[in-house]
């Protein structure tokens, strides 16, 4: 029983972590919590469905294509919902992101309909470990998520492009003074963020199914992960996601299955009360 809960907790949690990471990338770049991130997840899932079920492509290829499409959607989202308002108050941008969220939700309903859909798993079947039956899809999710996290880490920390993205995130004014076209750099960040979140949609769809409202719950749990992990911290977002996933599973099994969601918010509130800066402080302290 513990193994079972552990695996599903980690699998679901790591996905929350990945969505949270996408939100943190945008937050660090433009200082705005993107409340449409959950809908990137949903839309990515539908793209994967289109490639996998409607065009009959292999699931791994479909996930990659869906992720690229989502990247483009991310750039469009940046251009329409953020760029025009970048000089305005954060409130205005948050409201416009919420508007974009409605557009994505209802757009998905118009394109793909309102009946929930499913798509292929990366690997069918299940394996028995220590008396627990574990779906291969969960294992695949954990593996792919870890791989993506590693790739993002390498991209941001070890490459020149990553340095440029980070530089823009840390200081837009200065970036333009060293010759970086800020719109390109921020566009790339949105591309990356939406692509990452989009792939999660395709990974979750075979077990949780696609519906145009699936983004809301996932988005709010990713937000909880960010608060727990510490605003703006990438490792914090991932650890926060895992905590949310594990609290959900173990709390659901041992404390109350009815109040699973409530338990997450209890943990969230506890963090806000006793450790409001989250687990990880941002590595950048006050600018000296």
């Amino acid at each position: 029983m513990i193994v079972q809960l552990l695996v599903s907790g980690i699998a679901v949690g790591i996905v929350y972590g990945l969505i949270a990471m996408g939100m943190v990338l945008i937050f660090r770049a433009v200082g705005i919590m993107n409340f449409a991130q959950g809908d990137f997840l949903m839309f990515g899932g539908y793209f994967a469905y289109t490639f996998n079920q409607m065009l009959g492509l292999n699931i791994v290829l479909s996930l990659i294509l869906a992720s690229l499409c989502m990247g483009v959607i991310g750039v469009i989202f940046m251009r329409t919902s953020y760029w025009a308002l970048r000089g305005a108050q954060a409130k205005a941008i948050i409201v416009s992101a919420m508007g974009a969220s409605i557009v994505l939700k209802e757009g998905a309903r118009l394109i793909w309909g309102s009946i929930p859909l499913s798509l292929d798993k990366v690997k069918e079947g299940s394996v028995t470990v220590a008396g627990a039956t574990i779906q291969w899809q969960y294992v695949a999710i954990i593996g792919i998520a870890l791989l993506l996290m590693l790739l993002v880490y390498l991209l941001l920390e070890k490459t020149f492009v990553g340095n440029i993205l980070q530089a823009t995130a840390q200081d837009q004014y200065m970036s333009s003074l060293v010759g970086i076209p800020v719109i390109v750099s921020i566009g790339l960040t949105f591309f990356l963020s939406a692509a990452l979140t989009g792939i999660c949609g395709g990974l979750l769809a075979p077990i949780f199914f696609l519906s145009n409202t699936m983004g809301a719950t996932a988005g709010s749990k990713a937000f909880a992960a960010i608060v727990i992990g510490g605003f703006g911290s990438v490792p914090g977002a991932i650890i926060g996601g895992l905590i949310v996933g594990l609290v959900e599973q173990f709390g659901g099994a041992y404390i109350s299955s009815t109040y699973q969601l409530v338990l997450i918010y209890v943990v969230l509130i506890a963090f806000l009360m006793f450790r409001p800066r989250g687990l990880f402080k941002e590595k950048i302290q006050e600018k000296a």
Partner: peptide, 28 residues
């Protein structure tokens, strides 16, 4: 600029490399 505006989360060498964008342009 005034206040120096170094990129706080990058290392010294990364800051310097980002500076080459002005001379050599944006590249991969």
């Amino acid at each position: 600029p005034e206040g120096r505006h170094v990129f706080p989360g990058l290392t010294v060498e990364e800051n310097l490399l980002v500076g080459t964008v002005a001379g050599k342009g944006l590249r991969l």
